[in-house]
């Protein structure tokens, strides 16, 4: 079950790389958040402890509801509707993503022989990190950068559930809080920038350099 969800997660990444609509990106992120919450709920079916339900609940709350809601609000507030403009051809970009993804899968297959990891969630997490970075590199819009960053963070979470030893809940909760704060700050910064710079493109940030 975990593997199936991880594959689904991976596919959502491909969609994130492909789509040219900002709103679809948000939907993908929301879906990823829900998938992550479900993956973190799975071990609870074997043995249930009340303390461990905090993490999936928080995941669902923050990644599934709060952050998408907030980003959608930013989109409506700042009136961002034009499509995502890629800097390289869409085809090249998707090939790059797929190549790196397959490299990651092969690599984690080799790695699994010597370490105790679940190949598919591990590789999916890693691909999410790489896809996130690629999205940041090859997209112009600042808001899409935030989404690339969120995809990276999702990857890190999947990573955490793929390794054999469990991270303490408090650390994962701390990470969640971190992400939320970062997105929050980014929203505020975007709002501020929108008053001085008209487009929300990273290249224009160069003008702010002192």
């Amino acid at each position: 079950m975990e593997n199936v969800l991880s594959i689904l997660f991976c596919l959502s990444l491909l969609y994130l790389a492909l789509t040219s609509r900002v709103k679809h990106c948000v939907n993908v992120l929301q879906a990823q958040g829900i998938i992550l919450a479900v993956i973190n709920t799975l071990p609870l079916f074997h043995h249930f402890t009340l303390g461990e339900i905090i993490l999936p609940a928080a995941l669902l709350g923050i990644k599934g509801v709060l952050i998408p809601f907030y980003i959608r609000k930013i989109i409506t507030d700042l009136d961002i509707k034009d499509p995502i403009e890629p800097t390289i051809q869409q085809f090249t970009f998707i090939m790059l993503v797929i190549t790196l993804m397959s490299a990651v899968f092969v690599a984690s297959g080799i790695l699994a022989k010597s370490t105790e990891i679940n190949i598919i969630p591990f590789a999916s997490g890693f691909s999410a990190i790489i896809t996130g970075i690629l999205v940041i590199i090859f997209r112009k819009k600042l808001l899409v950068h935030v989404m690339g960053f969120l995809a990276m963070e999702n990857g890190i979470f999947l990573f955490g559930s793929a390794i054999a030893f469990k991270l303490p809940v408090i650390i994962e909760l701390g990470m969640l809080l971190d992400i939320f704060v970062v997105v929050f700050l980014m929203g505020i910064a975007l709002n501020k920038i929108s008053t001085t710079l008209s487009g929300f493109e990273a290249a224009q940030l160069r003008r702010l350099k002192d």
Partner: peptide, 15 residues
């Protein structure tokens, strides 16, 4: 370049 995306690209290369 001073564009932030180039720096992210450098990070990816280092990873």
């Amino acid at each position: 370049n001073t564009d932030i995306r180039y720096y992210v690209a450098y990070i990816l290369i280092m990873i």
